[in-house]
């Protein structure tokens, strides 16, 4: 069997449009995941037991169920409780909430790695609790969590391939379409692997750059 470079060019636009969907769905899902994770980790730190339990429950459910199950519940189960969402939106919400569970744990570990003495010093100076979080804890935590967060975003991008199952026209879905139309297998999957790899390398490089930018004298 010969490697047909020609169909790669013919299907280029389809693959690139899939790539674009993957990129923007993952970008929005990552934002949601980071926001949810940060929110949950801050709430987790409050001295309120019920809030803590709710946060814990969220984290455990997100980590304890496959992402595909969550996507099916949202997409196929949604309508039965009056929630009819566009597949792409389900993808963003599903991946975002799912990733949020992991980000919450990353952030929590980040918060806990800041020595208590630093917070006592802030307390003695009369800095209000919320400003201690915003100005002392979060900036330091962000530096600490850049490497694991980069990792988490990479995982999220790979998991986004599952969105093809709920009909989102992202990279994997469009590749499958290409396979179905051309009966070629090797070319489409080599092409898609290359595109995912480029995307993920891009994320890894960005993560590395952020690490250098925000790493303070250590």
């Amino acid at each position: 069997m010969s490697f047909d470079i020609d169909i790669m060019f013919r299907y280029g636009p389809l693959l690139l449009s899939g790539l674009w969907t993957t990129v923007h769905v993952c970008a929005l899902a990552s934002l949601l995941a980071v926001a949810a994770g940060l929110g949950v980790s801050v709430l987790y730190g409050l001295p309120m037991r019920p809030v803590k339990l709710l946060c814990r429950a969220y984290i455990e459910v997100m980590r304890g169920t496959p992402i595909l199950t969550l996507l099916f519940i949202l997409y196929y189960g949604g309508p039965s409780f009056g929630l009819t969402l566009d597949a792409e939106l389900v993808g963003i919400i599903g991946l975002g909430l799912y990733g949020g569970g992991y980000f919450a744990e990353i952030f929590r570990a980040g918060f806990e790695s800041i020595p208590a003495g630093q917070l006592e010093a802030a307390r003695m100076l009369g800095i209000p609790r919320r400003l201690v979080v915003a100005r002392i804890q979060i900036p330091q935590m962000l530096t600490l969590i850049i490497p694991p967060s980069t990792n988490q975003v990479i995982i999220l991008v790979k998991e986004s391939a599952l969105l093809s199952i709920i009909t989102v026209a992202e990279l994997t879905k469009n590749t499958t379409q290409m396979v179905n139309e051309t009966f070629a297998v090797v070319e489409p999957y080599v092409a898609v692997a290359l595109l995912y790899w480029l995307l993920i390398e891009g994320i890894a490089l960005t993560g590395g750059a952020l690490e250098r930018r925000f790493g303070y004298a250590s």
Binding site: P115, G117, Q118, E120, A121, A122, M124, I136, P139, Q140, T143, Y216, S218
Partner: peptide
């Protein structure tokens, strides 16, 4: 009150 700690507790960032 101003307080000084054994381990300084400066903010490293």
């Amino acid at each position: 009150i101003g307080m000084v700690f054994q381990h300084y507790n400066l903010w490293p960032h």
